[in-house]
Design a protein around this nucleic acid. Sequence first.
DNA 1: TGCAGCATGTAACCTGTTACATGATTAG
DNA 2: CTAATCATGTAACAGGTTACATGCTGCA
Lengths: 189, 189
Amino acid sequence: MKRITIDSNLSLAILGLLAQEPMSGYGLRKVFLTTAMKAWSDSPGAIYPALRRLRKDGLIEGTVQRENTLRPREVFALTRRGRAGLVASLTRPVTREDVVRRTDGLFLRFSLMSGLVGRDGMLAFLRGMEGQTEDYLKVLEAEFRRRGPGLPFSGRAALERGVEDFRATVRWVKKTRMDLAKLRTTEGE
Amino acid sequence: MKRITIDSNLSLAILGLLAQEPMSGYGLRKVFLTTAMKAWSDSPGAIYPALRRLRKDGLIEGTVQRENTLRPREVFALTRRGRAGLVASLTRPVTREDVVRRTDGLFLRFSLMSGLVGRDGMLAFLRGMEGQTEDYLKVLEAEFRRRGPGLPFSGRAALERGVEDFRATVRWVKKTRMDLAKLRTTEGE
DNA sequence: TGCAGCATGTAACCTGTTACATGATTAG
DNA sequence: CTAATCATGTAACAGGTTACATGCTGCA
């Protein structure tokens, strides 16, 4: 059986939500629409195809509610394989690319960890995230020192915000690691 | 002539860079690869098709350097239409959707403004951004107060970071507006 | 002469967007 | 009964990723 990794943030978010509670496609849409996960697509043209893909890969299975009607209602839940794939995707080592181009993917991954990944796994993830972010921050800061003074106003201001954003991420990671270390081992798992 | 608006961040970034200085496709790749614009794609499979689209729409034109060879080198520059379209795309009103789903697009837009958009245009943009961000921040904060306490550790921590991020954006906008107001009118235009 | 880096591109594929379509259920 | 909302979907399209292919140029 080949290794499973979930490619897109949307699929990851769907799997993560279904891990917490089985839901229909419409239920997922409502979550994306009404909660803080608004950053992800609530469009049926994204969700239903994604669900079909996940089912095809054996990561989820649906039980049809209202059989024999023309408009069945289908509730999806993770399979064992789906849970394993989700956990594997969440705990994958944090790369430079993750930090530079998929920052929100990183926060999404962490947000889904409780209940699926133990405290050690979360700490390892945060350590990786901290290291990669600090490395990249150094690069950005060096660039800001070198090229910043020559940049026009708006470019410099935007770059400054970018640098500050990575600094804030580092602060968040450090704080979250501390909070997590203080937690009783079982809590949040 | 129909109104031009640039759809994707990559196209916007390309137009913005070409507005500063004509460049070849490879030149653009190098910028994406070696500067703070690493968040955008440096892959030829994205850049060259985008350049062809922009040329097809009459927004840029290329002058071939090494004619008669099998491997010509082409330097692209904005057309008048391209500059107009770029300015229109940069100064488009800031929407809620921009804030929630296209935050980096907003910073990209602002970063490209100097030299193309006057101080009043920049201030209008920042005012719009501030209003929309504050509105959404209120929504997020309310959600955090309501649902935060019940969330598992990692979900709560990630949501907290999200809220803090929008707060930081508001602070940045306020500061940048002040800095901009202090600037001599001509500077940074 | 050969290799590294400059420079341009294509093809297959995947995912998401927009817009449309349609049936089922429930509150007034 | 009817309108709103629940609920599921499709089709056309746009855009990006990955992997591959190829020629040119300067230098050791």
